[in-house]
Write a protein that binds this DNA or RNA. Structure first.
Length: 492
RNA sequence: GGCGGCAUAGCCAAGUGGUAAGGCAGAGGACUGCAAAUCCUUUAUUCGUCGGUUCAAAUCCGUCUGCCGCCUCCA
């Protein structure tokens, strides 16, 4: 049974959907004004795993996100780059979609754009005025926080507390300094026509209008970074529930920040790594793995040293995937009377169960990865034991083990290519390597160690690792080469 | 100043009442011509501090210390 931590109640709750078998989720996306950084990617990966796990659990998921393509920052950045605001937004929205592919993040079912939903937003603002929750002053429309009794229920603060410690500059035309804009007046020619004159939607209203339009007045999951709890999500709740008179969202999920030396990575602070610069050094897979080793609600400290460790740790899992594939490609020894592997398979199934339980407990990917390593240990022990031979019985069991292993990895979005084949797409290369390996084998048979080692060392220099296993010689392409190939893909 | 969170081995990290997962690094052994990989063993009598509750606490309560987030744009 799935339990999720709900920011609204501060507790882990049993997960029940509005509509049986269907999950409607909305995740706050980004303002498309620049390239994405690792903080954005953590959020995207987090909700991607949640989505994958929900799908694995049998739900049909409608996963919606947004691109904020109208605001001051976009206009300013567009001027800097000599583009129109909409060109700039397109450029960075497309860049984001390219980036998430590198991290194996599934695209949302729909990315809603503010500029394409102005009518809905205007309708919503007008209704809020009608119902007495909002007021217009000089072409600006504000939401009156005092008119909404539950204001503060998500972030756990009261109006009195907030007013006491307010650091918000008092704005003349607001009735209460905490009132927030639903519609902002702008210069002629820059905005959209509305009953209150030309303007732009306020920041919070877009998510409310667009999510309700697509998912209905009440939907299951709304996610985003912890830094959005207040004021963004608090305001979304206020305006949405005031508008519809119904509960807006059942489960509010918030992921922790990515930190650099303990400080939150953020654009405005200037302390951030863009996804693109990180991808020059590490594969998307490695970054993804690293981010998932920490529970999603906790902050995570980012560094290249930590990524190096993650690379080594992930390599252990990848190595097992390759070995398993190689074992399954061996000839079956039908005369073998060795064990059937039944006990081994029981342990595999047990690990599978534990893995699923971990994710059922508020998507605990850190624990799940631990279990994946347990499973790797089981597989390694089994296929590397001295007396191991492949026979009909354990072949079937190992095939099923491979299935389980890949299935679990895929929930985390980890997909492994079989390493020896992954980069070699040239029909010439593979036979050539095999030829060199044959020569080395001959040298070894003649105990010509010098020549054998020379071949191994030279291959290593060009990025091909040769290993002698109990099953014979195996080779694979080293990680760094592959990471570089990834970069080439996105920069070309 | 207000509200909230976190503190677990050399490092990273799970664990929210029943006696400390997992990874990285380190040590020893097996295997190997050597190496790599892999396997086995080993590395916290203890979970920031001081108290309290309980038969039992890393887990609950209080205290202190340190760090972080939000209160302004933010994933």
């Amino acid at each position: 049974m799935l339990k999720v931590y709900n920011t609204l109640t501060g507790e882990k709750e049993k997960f029940e959907t509005v509509e049986a078998g269907k999950v409607k989720m909305y995740v706050c996306g980004l303002t498309v004004q620049n390239y994405s950084h690792i903080g954005h990617i953590r959020s995207a990966i987090n909700y991607d795993v949640i989505r994958r796990f929900l799908e694995y659990s049998g739900y049909e998921v409608d996963y919606i996100s947004n691109f904020t393509d109208i605001n001051e920052k976009i206009v300013k950045r567009a001027e800097e780059e000599g583009l129109t605001p909409s060109e700039l937004a397109d450029k960075y929205a497309n860049a984001f979609l390219e980036d998430i592919r590198e991290f194996n993040i599934k695209a949302a079912d729909k990315y809603l754009r503010v500029s394409e939903n102005i009518d809905e937003i205007i309708e919503m603002v007008a209704t809020l005025i009608e119902k007495g929750y909002a007021y217009e002053v000089n072409g600006n429309v504000y939401f009156s926080v005092e008119s909404f009794d539950d204001y503060g229920k998500l972030s756990g603060r009261s109006l009195e507390e907030m007013q006491a410690g307010a650091r918000i500059a008092v704005q003349e035309d607001k009735e209460n300094p905490l009132d927030f804009a639903l519609w902002k007046k702008v210069e002629k020619g820059e905005g959209w026509d509305s009953p209150w004159g030309e303007g732009w939607p306020g920041w919070h209203i877009e998510c409310s209008a667009m999510s309700m339009k697509r998912l209905g007045a009440t939907f299951d999951i709304h996610g985003g970074g912890v830094d959005l709890i207040f004021p963004h999500h608090e305001n979304e709740i206020a305006q949405s529930e005031a508008y519809s008179g119904e509960r807006f969202v059942n489960y509010w999920l918030h992921n922790g920040t990515v930190n650099l030396s303990g400080e939150k990575m953020s654009k405005s602070q200037g302390n951030f790594f863009t996804s693109r610069e990180v991808l020059k050094e590490f594969s998307g897979q490695e970054v993804r793995y690293f981010l998932l080793t920490r529970h999603y609600r906790s902050p995570i400290d980012f560094s290249y040293e930590k990524l190096e460790e993650a690379r080594t740790s992930l390599a252990r899992i990848k190595n097992t995937r390759s070995q398993l594939a190689k074992v399954l490609s061996l000839d079956i020894n039908s005369a073998s009377r060795e064990g059937s592997g039944k006990k081994f398979f029981e342990r595999v199934i047990e690990k599978q169960k534990t893995f699923i339980e971990a994710l059922n407990d508020d998507f605990n990917t850190a624990e799940a990865i631990g279990v994946l390593h347990d499973l790797v240990g089981e597989i390694n022990s089994y296929i590397n034991q001295k007396e191991f031979t492949l026979n009909e019985k354990n072949f079937a069991i190992l095939e099923e083990t491979e299935e389980v292993f890949l299935e679990l990895a895929e929930i985390l979005g980890l997909e492994f290519e079989i390493e020896s084949d992954s980069v070699v797409d040239n029909d010439l290369v593979e036979p050539l390597i095999n030829l060199l390996i044959e020569l080395r084998e001959q040298a070894r048979e003649n105990k010509n160690w010098e020549e054998a080692d020379l071949i191994r060392d030279r291959l290593k220099e060009i990025g091909i690792e040769v290993t002698d296993t109990p099953r014979g010689v195996e080779w694979k392409v080293k990680e760094k080469i592959k990471a570089k190939n990834n970069i080439r893909k996105i920069t070309e």
